[in-house]
Amino acid sequence: MSSTFDTVANIIAETCDIPRENIKPESHAIDDLGIDSLDFLDIAFAIDKAFGIKLPLERWTQEVNEGKATTEQYFVLSNLCERIDELKAAKGA
C-alpha cells in the first residue's frame, strides 16, 4: 500500500499543484485537499496509466449518489489506495 500511496500522492501533488507534504493517507481528496470532479479526471487518467487499471469512477459515483457508499470509502487516500491495490490484484488474477 505504501508504494501505491506514494505514487498516488505524487500524482495528486503534480496534477493539482498541492504541496506533497500536505497529502497524507488520511486526507480526503475532496474535503481536505479541495480536489473537484474535473481535477479528479486528470488524477484518474494518471492513476489508470500508472497502474494499468481503470478506476470505476462512474460506479463509485452512482453508489455514493444512491447512498450505498460514502465518499470516505473511495476518496480518503488510504481507502483509494486499497481500492487501487484490489484492482491491480484483480487484473493480475
Partner: peptide, 9 residues
C-alpha cells in the same frame, strides 16, 4: 489516448 470510466482523453 485513454478510455476511462466516464471519460476519454
Amino acid at each position: 489516448l485513454h478510455e476511462g470510466s466516464g471519460f476519454y482523453k
